[in-house]
Amino acid sequence: MVYCVGHNIISPLGRGSKENYESVKAGRSGLKRYVNRFADVEPFCASLFDTPQSFVSLCIESIEMALEECHGTIINTQDAQAVFILSTTKGDNLELLKPAQQIAHYFGNPNSPIVVSNACTSGVCAQIIAKRLLETGIYQHAIVIGCDLQTRFIVSGFQSFKALSPDPCKPFSPDRQGLNLGEAVATIIYTREPGEDNQKPAFWTLQAGSIHNDANHLSAPSRTGEGAYRCLMDVMEGFCPADIDLVGVHGTATLYNDDMEEIALERAGLQNVPKSVLKPFLGHTMGAAGVLETIICAMAAKDSNNTSQMLQVIKMLSGFGGVNAAIRIQCE
C-alpha cells in the first residue's frame, strides 16, 4: 500500500480540497448553462471556470497547494525518487506530453513524466500506476495530477455523440438525459513511507487497484458490466460487501453508463452500500475525475466516521475504449 500525504482540488466550486468538499456538502453546484461559449456549439450545461485558465499554471498551483498541505512528510520534488504522473484526456490544447514536461521541469524534477491517457478512467489508473511504481521501489514519491479544461473540440464531440444533457445531470434517475462536462485540476501526493514523527501520517492509504477491459464496444459499456464487475471483485479481495463503507461511482448520467454500473455493483453485492456521485456538483471532469472524486469520497468518509474504525472506500470509473478501473482506499 502507499500513503496519501497531500491533496488539492481547484474547481469552479473553490480553491483547495476543503473548500470544494464544503461546497459539495452544502449542495452547491458549479453547473451553469452556456449559450455562446464556443462558436457553432449548441447551448450546453457545464461546470466551467469563470475565466479561461492556463493548463500548466493551474496544475502548478494545485501541486504547490498539495505540497503545502503535506503534513509530516517533506516531499522534495527535485529528488530523482519523485515522479510526476499526469492524468488527462485532451491536455493543453491537445498536447499531452508537453504540459507534463513543463510541470516536471518547473518543479526541478529530473525524471521523464508519465502521462496516463486511458480515457475517463485515467485519474484512477494514474493512482494505480503510482502505487505500482512506489511498491516496486522504482520511485519513492508520486505526484499525481488530474486536469482537463473544456474546449470547443470536446464539447462538440460529446454533442455529436448526443451524450450531453441540456440541463443539470441526474445520475441514476429514470429520466436522466446525459452528462455535463466540467473543468478542474486535482492533485494527490503518494509516498511509500510517510514521516515517522507525525501522529497522523497520512490522509488515507491506497490499498488495491484494478483495470479491466469489457472487450465489448469502443464507445458503449458492457451490458453485463463485465469489466467494472471484475475491477470491483479485484479491489474487494479479502473483504465482503458489508466491509465496504462507500463506493464513489462514476455516475455520468448517460443512459448506458449508469445502467452498467448498477449491474456491476449488484453483481459484486454492493447494492446496499452507500454510494457517492459527484457529477451534479462538478460535472464530468474527465482526466481530473478520478483524482478529484477520490479526494472528495475520502473526505466524506472521514467526515461521517464517528468511530475509530478504518473505513474502506472504493472509487470506480469507466471510459471509452471499453476500459474500467477501480481502487480501494482505507481511511480513518
Partner: peptide, 10 residues
C-alpha cells in the same frame, strides 16, 4: 478482459 492501459511518454 484483463488490463488495457495507454501512456504518453517521451
Amino acid at each position: 478482459q484483463g488490463e488495457t492501459s495507454f501512456y504518453v511518454l517521451d
